[in-house]
Write a protein that binds this DNA or RNA. Structure first.
Length: 387
DNA sequence: AAGGCTTCCAACCGCGTAATA
DNA sequence: CTATTACGCGGTTGGAAGCCT
């Protein structure tokens, strides 16, 4: 019954790896591939625990690893992701090609953590955080990554988010850039009441109260968004057309034929919204009185931020659309992409989603006058949290 | 130059979850 | 369904290297 023991603890080498051990491990994995760590030491002739082999390979020997020289852009990304995710080093590392969770963790503990702490102290003393240009003597945090325009620089909630920047890579799908209208006022999460976030055993190790504990939501499959204050959830959805939609994992691109279907679809979605977060491990200590400024829990399939971060949106985010008379004619940019599934009714679409949404991923929702890239959304969320 | 202190980071440890018999 | 264990993750440790006095 069950699995056999991982490895015998006796007679194993510990501590630093020798170059001979490294060579053996590299050669073994070159021939046999990764995985099966339990059997690896025996098969490869290493006096190491499988766990130790895995760690050595993943953190040090893997050929695609970048080591050292973490640049300002990477620093900035780490800081932003850490702001968003907390100590979820593996998730953060997943967004930094060639970097390992261990390296990022170490780098944070030895460099960034102190910088951020110092920065927070200095800004709370002298600079209103919202207006802060991060222009302290140490030039920290470093400038935003140039390839992913951040939503910094806005000074007024009402102007948030700032007009879309034409250099945003994900905006490339527009067929008529000259007619592109800036994103209208959107306030997906103008404020977040962290007391409404569910408690989690995991969060005990996280000191940042603004952090989304994605793991806590994994089981309950929820993406938390708060609508604009003073607006009902539905009204907010309909008037501001939140740039997040849902896509089933069937590999098909789907479109909504008519704008009116949006509100119908949202009606359906809203019927799935609950005002009481019920994640695994929640002790119910959150505030349930959220009718006017509620947390929307899109309890549809498996939506959670960590899944989003782990997703490759390159294939689903680029759409053409022509903004003529709100025709809402969505079509994939690439001719290689699968044909759109046309729905005659939003209920069909939702039914399809329900059928296929064993793992629903969020994608850009492209609607008239709105193209809100997912990366921008993430940046926005990070910015909100920074406020 | 030597001893002590600090920093850095590879490796270890323990825990939660997923997988398997 | 249950018991058991592999896997993966985050926290922590310990030793090497660098710095300071």
């Amino acid at each position: 019954m069950g699995r056999s023991p991982c490895c015998a603890k006796e007679g194993l080498n510990k501590g630093a790896w020798t170059s001979q051990e490294d060579d053996i491990l590299i050669e073994y994995i070159r021939i046999n591939g990764e995985g099966k760590w339990r059997n690896l030491p025996k098969n490869a002739g290493l006096k190491r625990c499988g766990k130790s082999c895995r760690l050595r390979w993943l953190n040090y020997l893997r050929p695609d690893i970048k080591r050292g020289n973490i640049g300002p852009d990477e620093e900035d990304l780490i800081i932003r992701l850490h702001k968003l995710l907390g100590n979820r080093w593996s998730l953060i590392a997943g967004r930094l090609p060639g970097r390992t969770d261990n390296e990022i963790k170490n780098y944070w503990n030895t460099n960034l953590g102190k910088k951020v702490q110092n920065h927070q102290i200095s800004t709370t003393v002298s600079i209103p955080p919202k207006l802060s240009g991060h222009s302290d003597e140490n030039n920290f945090p470093p400038p935003a990554v140039s390839t992913t325009p951040m939503l910094s620089g806005y000074t007024d909630e009402n102007n948030f988010p700032p007009p879309a920047v034409s250099t945003t890579p994900m905006l490339s799908g527009y067929t008529d850039e000259n007619n592109f209208n800036p994103v209208p006022t959107i306030n997906l999460m103008s404020s977040i009441d962290t007391s409404t976030l569910p408690s989690s055993p995991i969060s005990k190790t996280c000191t940042n109260s603004n952090v989304i504990r994605t793991k806590a939501f994994r089981c309950s499959s929820k993406l938390l968004l708060t609508p604009q204050p003073n607006k009902s959830c539905k009204e907010n959805l309909e008037t501001n057309v939140i740039g997040v939609g849902l896509m089933p994992m069937d590999g098909q691109h789907h479109s909504v034929n008519k704008p009116t279907e949006l509100s119908g679809a949202f009606d359906e979605l809203l019927s799935l919204v609950t005002t009481t977060p019920t994640p695994t491990g929640s002790s119910g200590d959150h505030n349930n009185n959220q009718s006017s400024d509620l947390l929307m829990n899109f309890n549809v399939g498996h939506i959670c931020l960590s899944d989003l971060l782990n997703s490759d949106f390159s294939g689903v985010c680029d759409f053409n659309y022509s903004d003529d008379n709100m025709s809402n004619d969505l079509s994939p940019v690439s001719a290689d992409q699968p044909p759109l599934t046309q729905y005659s009714d939003h209920r069909d679409m939702l039914q399809d989603w329900k059928i296929n949404n064993s793992c629903v991923q969020t994608m850009n929702y492209v609607a008239p006058n709105l193209q809100y890239s997912f990366s921008s959304l993430l940046n926005s969320v990070a910015e909100w949290f920074e406020e």
